[in-house]
Design a protein around this nucleic acid. Structure first.
Length: 503
RNA sequence: GGCCGCGUACCCAAGUGGUUCAAGGGGACGGAUUGCAAAUCCGUUAUUCGUCGGUUCGAAUCCGACCGCGGCCUCCA
């Protein structure tokens, strides 16, 4: 099955063919580390991590690079404001970011190069552009001359002349030939810390914003690689400028595919730091704070529940609804463990490996349906990594396994073949979910909070309640259940005992 | 002003020309099950896809206009 991927460059879905057969190089624009990451900063990594998992499943050898921009104006300003060392601030924020991503299941990044460690390569690149006449020096600054680049604007579909009308006061600064020219190298200012003053042929200074990506991508992935991605807001000017400065030096295509994901919103507005309304909720939207309040799997699930190019409106309501949906899977896996006595998280045999257990029409139908679901899941992923549709299939599968358990009365009747089949269905479901980074391990449920005493006390109440119910004193039993419910604890009476979990 | 994207049920959200194309989730309501619940299963909840036109044998899906929302053009995932 071939994959189709939407390419911003052509504004169409294209057949996915890597530059080198069997190998995929992908680059995602990572953060500028000057403030704690928010949920929006996790969207790209989660999607790319899922893409990588899927490509690996399809048999590709994938190399994935995420940059860290640790030399930039805003970091200098922020460090100054906090009275801390620039590089310390950058490292600290980078560490927090990487930790957050790891918790979200993003563990497949192969390299995270830092801008500060590739200054030499950037200087070489800039020199090459000057020699070829694409860049010019003004004082200690170096600018890229967009008028020399004939196809400038091809990614964002902009014409330079039309941009002029948007030019505002102060934009036409010091010695630029065209307002659209952008800095490749910025001369150091006297008051800036030494840590960000790098020697160059043009005097002390530091690289402009876009050059690090061009240089690090080429170094780690080759002059032309397969997939370059980031948020929609990076299309212009960041990615446009990357293309300009890369292709003007090499005369070869930079990235073959450009993938841009939708921006995360809150109350229909992009999560940004400049809005007063947004400033109030900003702390809650920080990655570390969200991870403290919600399971990482849920955040990941929510993000993958809509297509990557669509914007996600992030709110407590959407989180709650997603949490309920996700709970369906967790309860199914618990149910299976209870019925079969083995955790589906550890089971290895997928449905096609136990097809010989399907005797009888009910089992045969179940087998067919699950096999069909598997195909539908893969088709969804093949079509521009449609994780939203893929998750829809996972819900169908959960319903099927539950139904099969009901139909075969597995909970009360011993049926080895049916049990193996049900387990195979759930294992398939888990296997597919894991391509999205979901269901990696059983969620902490019963022992939430790690408070042993709570567990013992609830058990005690359940036992007392069972005694009451046995002697038909239901009012007492119901009172216990009601009071526990008020404390956020739900009881489930089953034939083989009472289960509890937190709401 | 220029460029780009979006507008599908009460909410979220797939679907970009035609045999289940109106998925899936949340919510609500009915039924099975349960002492009652919970969980699970079954069923109902958009003859209609922002509005108005057009193309077509046929459109949520293509074209045009309009309305609304958002993004970029300045730092931004």
């Amino acid at each position: 099955m071939t994959m189709r991927v939407y390419n911003t460059l052509s504004r169409e879905k294209e057949m996915f063919e890597p530059v080198v057969p069997g190998k995929v190089g992908m680059y995602l624009c990572g953060p500028t580390v000057y403030k704690p990451a928010h949920i929006g900063h996790a969207v790209g990594p989660i999607i790319f991590d899922s893409i990588k998992r899927y490509l690996v499943y399809k048999g590709y050898s994938v190399h994935w690079v995420v940059n860290v921009t640790d030399v930039e104006d805003k970091i200098i300003v922020e460090a100054e404001k906090r009275g801390v060392d620039v590089m310390e601030l950058a490292r600290d924020l980078e560490r927090q970011y990487v930790d957050g991503l790891a918790r979200l299941g993003v563990r497949s990044i192969d390299a995270m190069p830092r801008a500060s460690e590739h200054i030499g390569g950037m200087i070489e690149h800039i020199q090459g552009l000057i020699e070829r006449g694409y860049a010019y020096v003004v004082g200690g600054d170096v600018y890229f001359d967009v008028s020399k680049d004939k196809d400038y604007g091809k990614l964002s579909n902009r014409k330079q002349e039309e941009q002029l009308s948007g030019t505002r006061d102060g934009l036409v600064d010091k010695g630029k030939r065209n307002p659209g020219d952008f800095a490749l190298w910025k001369a150091a200012k006297a008051e800036e810390p030494d840590a960000v003053k790098y020697e160059s042929p043009w005097g002390k200074g530091r690289p402009g914003w876009h050059i690090e990506c061009s240089v690090m991508a080429a170094k780690l992935l080759g002059v032309t690689f397969d997939i370059h991605g980031g948020g929609m807001d990076l299309i212009f000017p960041h990615h446009e400028n990357e293309i300009a400065q890369s292709e003007s030096l090499t005369d070869k295509p930079f990235s073959k595919f450009w993938l841009h994901h939708g921006l995360t919103r809150f109350n229909t507005k992009k999560i940004s730091k400049s809005d007063a309304d947004m400033a109030r909720v900003m702390v809650d939207l920080q990655l570390n704070n969200l991870l403290a309040k919600h399971p990482a799997e849920l955040l990941r699930f929510l993000i993958l529940s809509s297509h990557y190019r669509a914007p996600i409106d992030f709110s407590p309501e959407t989180l709650e609804a997603a949490g309920k949906g996700l709970g369906t899977f967790h309860r199914l896996f618990e149910r299976l463990e209870r019925v079969i006595g083995a955790s589906p998280y550890k089971a290895e045999k997928r449905i096609e490996q136990v097809r010989d257990q399907a005797n009888g029409p009910v089992a045969a139908a179940f087998l067919d349906e699950v096999l069909g679901d598997q195909v539908r899941f893969l088709e969804a992923m093949d079509d521009d990594f449609n994780t939203a549709a893929a998750i829809g299939v996972l819900f169908d599968m959960a319903g099927r396994v539950n139904r099969f358990i009901e139909q075969t009365r597995l909970e009360t009747k011993r049926d080895e073949a049916a049990a193996v089949l049900a387990s195979g269905g759930a294992t398939t479901l888990i296997f597919l979910g894991r391509l999205l980074g979901l269901f990696e391990q059983a969620p902490e449920t019963q022992s939430v909070g790690g408070d042993e005493l709570t567990g013992e006390l609830v058990k005690l109440l359940i036992d007392v309640r069972a005694m009451a119910r046995k002697s038909k004193q239901f009012e007492i039993g119901d009172e216990v259940r009601k009071r526990l419910d008020g404390l956020g604890i739900l009881l489930e009476d089953r034939a083989d005992g009472t289960l509890w979990r937190r709401k």
